[in-house]
């Protein structure tokens, strides 16, 4: 039963990545043609161009802020889900993933109606007399982070939830009987035991955010520099596939390295566990 899976993986995952890697060594001629070759010109051009590294840093910075925001917002929500005495908890989990039934693009675009100059938030603040002029909340890093947090929050919550749900409640009860306050119990017992889930959620959110393309494109402004957008520009606008391939491999390696480091200290199985539930 393993062979079909291996064949699928080889055909649909490994082979395309290898194609991209091979393409990164090709030459793009002045006429716009891609000529098969093995040379490092594209790699050197990218490595020595500060612009691309700025783009990578921009992506990672926004991904980090998004991940931290997801963790801060997601933990209490997951805690609530794990601890609530409710007979039909599956329903709550179902509600968590309900937005996924709507197209990602539509969900992202909905933020324009919320954060825009004439959007719901500005209209409300003006009608309450809190502000006179609309706040600039759209088409900047803030709106991109909002969009990404909205998209990634369920992934964070489900990971933390699984971890919290698996904690033996007797451990918390024991801590309390030994004199711990509720806060101490949380800090000394619950939080450390839920760290694998939090770590898995953070890793997943960071990787997905750093590789995100649609949200920065729709909600970002002229100052939003995102690495996947540079890949898009190279491949689609400039038709420079070899450079686009180099950039793709760099993003893949950077995120792959992150996953490897995570796996070294935590375990990828925490992520599998979340989705196996």
């Amino acid at each position: 039963m393993l062979s079909p899976a291996l064949v699928s993986l080889a055909l649909f995952l490994v082979a395309p990545i290898l194609f991209i890697a091979v393409y990164s060594f090709w030459i793009r001629t002045a006429e716009g043609l891609d000529v098969p070759a093995f040379q490092f010109g594209n790699w050197i051009a990218v490595a020595t161009d500060y612009y691309y590294w700025l783009g990578l840093w921009g992506s990672f910075k926004l991904a980090l802020i998004t991940t931290i925001s997801c963790a801060i917002i997601g933990y209490p929500a997951a805690y609530f889900l794990a601890r609530i005495q409710f007979s039909n908890k599956v329903l709550l989990l179902f509600l968590l993933f309900l937005p996924f039934w709507i197209s990602y693009i539509i969900r992202t675009m909905a933020w324009i109606s919320v954060l825009g100059r004439t959007g719901a938030l500005n209209t409300m603040l003006i009608s309450l007399g809190i502000i006179d002029e609309p706040l600039k909340m759209l088409y900047n890093d803030f709106s991109v982070i909002m969009g990404l947090v909205y998209f990634l929050l369920p992934y964070m919550i489900i990971n933390i939830y699984v971890s919290l749900d698996g904690i033996d409640r007797n451990l918390e009860a024991s801590a309390r009987t030994l004199g711990c306050s509720p806060w101490q119990t949380f800090r000394e017992v619950t939080l450390p035991l839920s760290l694998p889930g939090l770590g898995a959620g953070c890793m997943l959110c960071f990787v997905l955010a750093a590789g995100s393309y649609v949200t920065p494109r729709l909600l970002g402004g002229p100052d939003t520099l995102f690495f996947p957008d540079l890949i898009y520009e190279a491949i689609i606008s400039q038709l420079d596939w070899p450079t686009g391939a180099v950039l793709s491999v760099i993003l893949l390696l950077s995120l792959g390295l992150l996953v490897a480091v995570y796996n070294r200290f935590m375990s990828l199985s925490d992520i599998y566990r979340s989705f196996a539930r």
């Binding site: 324009i112 100059r117 004439t118 002229p222």
Partner: peptide
């Protein structure tokens, strides 16, 4: 000009959306 611009739009539909909502 970039410092004056709120958004570079990518499609006609996006342009219509921005203008009609007075963004």
């Amino acid at each position: 000009q970039r410092d004056l611009v709120v958004k570079y739009w990518g499609s006609g539909q996006e342009f219509i959306d921005l203008m009609s909502k007075e963004e």
